[in-house]
Design a protein around this nucleic acid. Structure first.
Length: 110
DNA sequence: GCTCTGACTATTC
DNA sequence: CGAATAGCCAGAG
């Protein structure tokens, strides 16, 4: 594995690695990212992105219901529209939600 | 080395 | 459907 990410632990490296491998137009839920490297730490994944998200496409990592990270919904939407990520209208505060039925991605299918 | 916090998830009221 | 509660893991102080 190419440890191009300097992190405090292997967990951070794993998270950044998976997130960085997500192609444009595709998204993964925090649970899915954690599930990939066998560490069900959905919350920990978010923390890694909060501290090291500056180096990875954090907007491709969303919550289970297809909702973008709290406080970053507007910024995420700009990226989704720019990358052509399938979005769906939803009665959420952001007014939208990611179409997990089409945008759901897995490192196995690549 | 212990404690608090947090970009989460699932369940229940 | 929306708000509240509990459980979970890892990083920072």
């Amino acid at each position: 594995m190419t440890r191009v990410f300097s992190a405090s632990g292997d967990y951070t490296d794993a998270v950044l690695q998976v997130v960085a491998e997500i192609p444009a137009g595709r998204v993964m839920t925090y649970g899915d990212v954690a599930w990939v490297f066998g560490r069900p730490g959905a919350r920990a994944v978010g923390m890694v992105l909060r501290y090291h998200g500056s180096a990875v496409p954090w907007w491709r990592v969303i919550r289970a219901g297809g909702h973008p990270p709290s406080g970053h919904e507007a910024a995420a939407r700009e990226h989704y529209e720019a990358e052509g990520t399938p979005l769906l209208p939803a009665p959420t505060p952001a007014g939208y939600r990611v179409d997990l039925a089409k945008a759901s991605w897995s490192p196995d299918r690549a």
